[in-house]
Design a protein around this nucleic acid. Structure first.
Length: 427
RNA sequence: GGAGGGGUUCCCGAGUGGUCAAAGGGAUCAGACUGUAAAUCUGACGCGUAAGCUUCGGUGGUUCAAAUCCACCCCCCUCCA
């Protein structure tokens, strides 16, 4: 990768990706005057990252594209402690085995996003357990802890509610989290000459603490930048659907479901999301917005967003699969699908299940497939005309599914509502 | 330790002996309209085809009948020590 040296700060600013910076002008000239090593940490709170981590992850890549060296840290150590920042409750600790297993899978995910073979600014992924597991308690308290003022630490907004709120508290373990993360920054600074840390805006307190510690331990000036929390225009929580979190791991959230998540982005959010989650030029995004505005009917933006993000996360292959299913289900005529298309749907992440029953009622099938939460609901859906079997609307709730009438004698494609599908197939 | 106020169906919140599966709002889901939007309108929203069954912090009691009354217990909040 060439060192293009475009102004990354300005680029982030144009995309609305800067929440806070420690000395924006200084940081800007620091980044313009040479290749810098930029770090961002990701703690293992599950065996996969979810789309909440996408903004910082892509930001690392943006830094790399502008010629800087990204350094992703998997929080094998910090994940053992638990970040209390803006968390209203103390969290339970996971076992060491679990945390280390999660760290390993997260490390693997991080590696997909940044380039490890582009010369000088090739990326680095490290685990912060490497430099903390052998840290002894006395050194920790004397060499690191001495630089922290508890008075200052309890002033931080990020732990305020835990300290002030009645009925809540914070253990020493979580309280010390910030020290651990600060030490990461100082350590990375001396090991890799890392001078910039980025993170979500909830990380501001931890980042500034790291800047202070690095100055005190290494006598070096380092910088911080936080990215905004992604919000939706309707006030809802970003990244959650009825079915829960949108994960980056296709085993947890299929490429198809992932693609659909982005397709369903509200108009009010989609142009911002294009700036947050894709590498398209801001000018290009503005052009899309202009075009959508002047054209009537369906905007193109959601399709572009879904395509770009799915490709980034799941690659060309994942995108093709997601598009194939979406095409078949939403625009194409299902009856033109071949037997192998159905097989493909299954493999591509279409929710599906096997049935070994000779015959079963449609009501039962809807409940089994979780398209309806109870028989009563299933009947109501059928009565409302919300249920389709193999492309045909069914309004009789007494109907039975007979395999002879299935596609290829073995597939029933159930649909409830406008966008919920389930493939039922014969054993 | 003392005084007071609370815990209601996903959330907020009304209900103080039968007319309560429990007002109202939000969230959610479906239908119509659309663009696999938004807004709007309609409907559903404990389980059951139904009869009916199971819910109102927990346990026990009073009563023909309890979310509502009584006893004990658990949890939360406010004030005092």
């Amino acid at each position: 990768m060439e060192c293009t040296n475009l102004n990354i700060v300005e680029e982030l600013r144009n995309r609305g990706l800067i929440a806070q910076t420690a000395g924006e002008e200084e940081l800007e000239s620091h980044l313009l005057s040479g290749m810098r090593t930029v770090y961002c940490g990701f703690d293992p709170t599950a065996d996969s990252l979810h789309i909440g981590s996408l903004v910082p992850l892509l930001a690392l890549k943006r830094f790399q594209l502008s010629g800087h060296k990204p350094l992703a840290v998997a929080g094998g150590a910090t994940g053992m402690i638990g970040d209390p920042s803006f968390k209203s409750q103390e969290r339970k600790l996971n076992s060491a085995e679990v945390t280390q297993a999660w760290t390993a899978s997260i490390k693997k995910q991080l590696e997909q996003f940044i380039d490890f073979d582009c010369g000088k600014n090739s990326a680095l992924v490290v685990n912060n357990l490497e430099w903390t597991e052998n840290l002894d308690i006395i050194s920790f308290l004397r060499d690191i802890g001495k630089h922290f003022s508890v008075n200052a630490m309890i002033q931080k907004e990020s732990v305020k509610q835990r300290i002030e709120r009645e009925g809540e508290g914070i253990s020493f373990t979580e309280f010390a989290y910030s020290i651990l993360q600060s030490y990461d920054f100082a350590h990375l600074n001396s090991m890799f000459d890392c001078t910039v840390q980025i993170g979500g805006s909830d990380q501001w307190g931890n980042i500034t603490a790291g800047i202070d510690l690095t100055r005190r331990m290494n006598q070096k000036q380092v910088y911080g930048l936080t990215l905004p929390l992604v919000t939706k225009a309707d006030g809802g929580k970003f990244g959650k659907t009825e079915d829960g979190t949108i994960w980056l791991d296709p085993a947890r959230t299929s490429c198809y479901a992932f693609y659909q998540f982005w397709i369903n982005t509200a108009d009010a959010d989609v142009y911002n999301f294009l700036k947050y989650f894709t590498f398209l030029d801001v000018a290009e995004i503005d052009a899309i917005e202009e075009k959508d505005k002047s054209a009537q009917g369906r905007p193109e933006a959601q399709g572009i967003l879904a395509k770009e993000v799915t490709k980034l996360v799941h690659g060309e292959e994942g995108l093709v699969a997601a598009e194939r299913i979406s095409e078949a289900l939403f625009s194409g005529d299902i009856s033109v699908m071949t037997e192998s298309d159905f097989e493909q749907l299954k493999q591509d992440g279409m929710p599906s299940s096997v049935s070994s029953d000779a015959t079963l009622t449609l009501v039962q099938a809807l409940v089994d497939s979780e398209l309806a939460s109870s028989n009563k609901m299933a009947r109501e859906f059928i009565g409302n005309g919300a249920v389709t079997v193999n492309g045909k609307k069914i309004s009789d709730s007494a109907i039975e599914l007979v395999w002879d009438t299935a596609f290829f004698g073995k597939y029933f494609l159930l649909k409830r509502g406008k966008k919920l599908f389930h493939l039922l197939y014969k054993a």
